[in-house]
Structure formats: C-alpha cells, structure tokens
Design a protein around this nucleic acid. Structure first.
Lengths: 139, 139
DNA sequence: GTCCTTGCAAAACGTTTGCAGTTCA
DNA sequence: TGAACTGCAAACGTTTTGCAAGGAC
C-alpha cells in the first residue's frame, strides 16, 4: 500500500490530504531505517523548506493513531517511527541503539488476546534486547 | 527473589545498599501495576518524606541497567516500570494507557534470534496495542 | 465558506545533571 | 576515610500547545 492510497483511506475519516503529509508518509514507507521525528523533519525539509517540526509530530501522531505506523520509544532517547507496522519485529542493541528488523511468520496470538481480554487489537510490538555483534567485539 | 536479596547481589558489583533503594525495589516487586516514576515517588515518599524524584530515577535506571526491572516507554506518556521482568507480556490500551499482563508459555524465539543475528539477548518485550473494553464501551 | 491544517513560538513535560552535604562500607 | 549516594534545583531535549494565516474540500 502506498502513501496516496493510505491518505485516500484517511480522507473517508475526515483527515485532509496535504502535500506535507504525503511527503512524510512516503519517506516512512520507503526507508528501511527507523527514523526519529527529527530525521523525518530534515528529510521532508529538503522538499518543503518551510515545514515545521510541529507538523511532523502532528502527522506522525495522526498516522500512529490510525495504525499505519508504529512508534518505538526507549525511554532515554527520542522515539523512532516505523512505517512497516505489520509482520516484522525488532532486535535492539542496548549499547549502540541499533534497531534490526526480524522477519518471521506472524505469531497467531492476536485473536487469542482479543478474545481473552476484550481488546480491539490494532498493533503489536515484539522486541528482543541485547548486545549486537559489533558491540560485543569491542568489549 | 526479594528486594534484599537483589540488593545483596548488586553490592558485589559496587552498588551501595540504601534504605531508599530498598523501598523502591520492594514496591516494584510487590505491586501488580506498572507504575510510573512519579507513582513510585509518591509511594516511597510515604516512608521517606525527604526522598527526591532524582533518587527515584537514579535507582530505576540502575535497576534497569542490571536487568532487574523493565522500562516500558510509550512516547507521549511517561515510562512505566515493571518489576517482573521475565515471562510475561503486555496488552496496552491506546486510549487510557492501561497495561494488562498477559501470561503465556514463553515463545522459544530467543535462541533463534541470538543465533541468526549474533546478538547476546538480555531481555524481551511483547506487546499488543488496542482499545480496552472499558474505552470501547464509552465510544 | 467552513473547518482542518500549517508554521511559528512559547510552554510543558519527563528526565538528567551538577553540586554540596551525607551515608555506607 | 573515601567513594557512592542523596536531595535539591537548574538544565536539557523531546513533544505538545496556542494562535493567526493558509489551504483543502
């Protein structure tokens, strides 16, 4: 699903289509990194020099609330955003902060959780924390 | 494992035993909620009226770095701390922020990840996000 | 024309830091 | 005794908010 298609879906829910939002979403979908709001800001600024950080946050929160992206927070550092919200998990290095994707058949636990707790599940997050090979070598 | 035992283990690593730390850790181990730093602060303050929020953070970070507690960050709201770092997962309400425990046999993916990526895995986090029954009722 | 969104700036918030005094070992 | 810790207050960086102007529909 591409950015324009997603924004069309959102239009039915009263969310307006703007070129800034298109640029933000396109970047999130195409990049394989897990950018911070600041990184998204700098990237979008190349196309829209007048864009503000407030708009980035506004859009990121809107997309998160509608389940199109995932926010990954780690307490001490700034949040990272993942445009590939489904079907993959993360391995996070506690030393250097690197986030590696981990592809694997989806665990079928979502429906179990939904049934057991009565939650309406919209997203999931599975992460393993540890020390990456590079950092292990250095210590 | 209780608070005193954990603090004894930490003493071997040069971490000093203080009554404030004991109170913080005891609260984290006994409570079934996932308190924020602020909540820990208010609880410990009942016993030690002079305690400061800085000490709470100091201790929480120390315990996290030694792997005794887990920090759960959610971007917009403050972090929550979990004294039961192993063998359970979370279901999080995106509307009210409630965190419910989800007990289930551990997924045997850790060794797979360790092997595939060369990571030394020290922790994990599995969460499902959605809207809890209470919030669904209200909307 | 209406209402949502933008850009800007200021404010708010959670968390960290620096320091002087205190406590643990 | 000396290093680690506490309490306090100020600083920090990320994120949110308020508001006037602009743009989508």
């Amino acid at each position: 699903m591409d950015a324009i298609e997603i924004l069309k879906q959102l239009k039915d829910q009263g969310v307006r289509f703007t070129p800034q939002r298109q640029a933000i979403l396109e970047y999130l979908l195409e990049t394989k990194t897990h950018p911070t709001a600041e990184e998204v800001y700098h990237h979008v600024k190349a196309k829209f020099p007048g864009v503000s950080l407030g708009t980035i946050y506004n859009t990121l929160n809107m997309l998160k609330e509608h389940g199109y992206i995932l926010e990954l927070s780690y307490g001490d550092m700034s949040s990272r955003f993942d445009g590939n919200a489904k079907n993959h998990y993360h391995v996070v290095c506690l030393n250097c902060g690197k986030v590696v994707d981990f592809h694997r058949p989806l665990i079928e636990m979502e429906s179990e959780v939904a049934e057991k707790f009565g939650f309406e599940i919209t997203g999931e997050r599975l992460e393993f924390y540890g020390i990456c090979p590079d950092c292990r070598r250095k210590n």
